[in-house]
Structure formats: C-alpha cells, structure tokens
C-alpha cells in the first residue's frame, strides 16, 4: 500500500477504540488521579491503519457494484431463473447427479483403500499393480475413460468369468448390463479410485510408526490394527483431501452428459437447446445448485473432521452453532450492561 494514502485520514481523527483508557480513570478521586494518569501514560496506543480502511471501503464498493449488476442486469433474467430453479426436469437431473456422485464416491473410496493397502503391502506384485493402476488412470482424461466405456460393448460383446485362455463359467450380456448409469458410475469410480488411493496412502503414512509398533506389541489381530488403530487416525489426514476430491467429483459428474446420461448439467444443456433464449438463467440455475451441493459437503466435512479430531486436540473447536450462540450471549450481556449504565 502506498504511503501517500496515509495522510488522507489524519490519525487524530480516528474514532476512539475500546482499547483506549477507560473513562473511569478521569472520574477517580483526586489523590489517585496522578497514579491513574501515570498508568494511562504507560498504556501503549495501538498503531492506526488508515490505509486499510480506505482499501476496505474500495473493495466493498466494488462488491456492491457487482451485486447491483447481477440483480438489475436484464441479461440474467431472474424471473426465468425462478421459473427453472425447481422444474421437475431439472430436479430429475439433480437426482441423477446425486446418485452418480454417491455411488462413485463410495466405490472410488473403497477402491482407493484397496489400492492403497496393495501399494503399502509387502508383496512386490501387488505394489507394482497398484502403482500402474494409479499411474494409468491419473494419466487418462476422465472424458476419455467414459467414452471408451461407452463404446466398450462394441469391443467386447459379452463378458465372461473363467480361466484366462481356458473355459468360461459365467457369461454376461454386455448391452443389458451396461446401462448409461452403470457406465457413468464405473467410469467415475475407476478414475476416483486412482486419486483416492493416493489420498488414503498419504493418510496411512501420516500415522506415527509408534502406533503400528504399539498395536503389534499388544498382539492385536492385523485386521483390528488397521480398522481400529491405524485407519481412524489416518482419517484425520484423509478427510480434508478426500472432501476436496469429492467436490471435484460433484462437478466432474457433469461429464456424464457425454455418455447420454441427463444429470443436472445435462438437463440444463438439453433445456437450453430447446429454449435458446433461457440459456443464461439455466446456467445460473446449474451454478446455484452446484454451489448448494458443495456447501452441503463442506458443512458435513466440518463435523466429520471434528469427530475424527477427538483425542488429537485437547479441546474440540466450537461448532458454528456454538460460536453463534456464544457470540449472541456475549452481545446480549454487553447490551444489558450498556443500557444499565
């Protein structure tokens, strides 16, 4: 910030602060006034930041202008936004988005845990396979995976379970099995698992070696060691990264439009081509819904993180509700004091 801005508001015009000496000091009896004066002379006057105030005002003006523009520019057609916001055709899309997200998130996380355990196992074969999987699916764009799966039935008409190069025991008809939904969920899960694997692996590695040793020294069964001792502690590191991943997934589901699944974005897109004049309000509807979904995920994240920080922190941070309640109660106490005096 430029120093030239500083004289614009002379420091002596700055409003008094609550850090200034209390007024009681002046009202004190005569013989103690001198000591009170001496003490207030000792009180450090905080540095004023007039430049900070000017910049804040400037930014607030800008924000107000943007809001004003959003609200009054006829281009956004807020009446059409209202019309489209909860239309059944878009709600169906929203449900599809939620379904695809939920299935892919669960399958992706499960796959990620398996891949991470394989990567951390003592078997060189499992380690290599896990590494190659992650390398491959992090390298290939999601849209390519989805389109490839979409055309999969042309490559393999039937899927069968059996001995490689030997007899098959069980046949699937590809075209009946692979609905658009299945293709979308499989594609997203394959992709998601690769990223989740790294998130989970990082979490497991973040657990202190002493915890593994203590669990082993107590003779806890291996499954118990992982499920009750190591993984819950790893979750503290996993949750923030995985939620990041999940938010990417919520928005990534918009790609399933390309495998002809009408999710939220897909239905907005198809309505937009039917009603070309409404494309802007339709995109706004999609934006607002994605923002709502992400916000819900963020709120859930706060509480999940709080749950898994038990024991890691001496005292848990207050929830927003608790903070609000505390803020209100202190405000009420303050107002009562002020009105009483």
């Amino acid at each position: 910030m430029s120093d030239a801005l500083v004289p614009a508001v002379p420091p002596d015009t700055a409003r008094p602060r609550d850090t200034d000496p209390p007024p009681q000091a002046a009202a004190a009896p005569a013989e103690t006034t001198s000591t009170a004066d001496a003490r207030s002379a000792q009180r450090v006057i905080p540095l004023r930041h007039p430049g900070r105030w000017i910049v804040s005002v400037g930014v607030l003006v800008l924000v107000a202008q943007i809001v004003h523009g959003l609200a009054t520019n006829p281009f956004y057609q807020w009446d059409r936004f209202q019309y489209w916001f909860a239309r059944p055709v878009l709600m169906n899309g929203l449900v599809i988005t939620l379904e695809v997200t939920a299935y892919s998130a669960l399958l992706g996380l499960a796959g990620g845990i398996v891949l991470a355990l394989a990567r951390l196992s003592r078997s060189p074969v499992l380690r290599a396979i896990s590494w190659v999987y992650v390398w491959l699916f992090r390298s290939v764009p999601l849209i390519v995976v989805l389109l490839f799966l979409y055309n999969f039935s042309a490559l393999y008409r039937t899927l069968s379970v059996g001995v490689p190069f030997g007899p098959a025991f069980w046949h699937f008809d590809e075209s009946k099995l692979a609905t658009d939904m299945v293709i979308a969920v499989v594609g997203l899960s394959l992709n998601e698992a690769a990223y989740a694997a790294e998130v989970v692996r990082a979490g497991i590695l973040s657990v202190d070696q002493g915890q593994h040793e203590a669990a082993a020294a107590l003779g806890l069964p291996r499954r118990y060691q992982f499920a009750r001792i190591v993984f819950p502690q790893a979750l503290r590191a996993i949750v923030p990264s995985y939620v990041n991943q999940l938010i990417g997934l919520v928005k990534g589901t918009s790609l399933v439009f390309y495998v002809s699944l009408l999710d939220l974005f897909g239905s907005v897109q198809s309505m937009g081509s039917t009603y070309p004049g409404d494309i802007v309000p339709l995109l706004l509807v999609a934006t607002v819904w994605y923002v709502i979904l992400t916000s819900v995920v963020s709120v859930v994240q706060f509480y999940v993180e709080r749950h898994y920080s038990r024991g890691a922190l001496r005292t848990l941070p207050p929830t927003p509700v608790q903070r609000l309640r505390h803020g209100l109660s202190t405000l009420i106490v303050r107002v009562r004091k002020e009105t009483a005096s």
Binding site: Q211, A214, I229, G311
Partner: peptide, 13 residues
C-alpha cells in the same frame, strides 16, 4: 511391552 514414548492410542480414551 512399555515404550519410551508411551505410544498410547490418541483417538481412544
């Protein structure tokens, strides 16, 4: 076995 650094499980009471 009792460790130098205790190694209690921090997430359990």
């Amino acid at each position: 076995f009792v460790f130098q650094n205790f190694n209690l499980f921090p997430h359990l009471t």
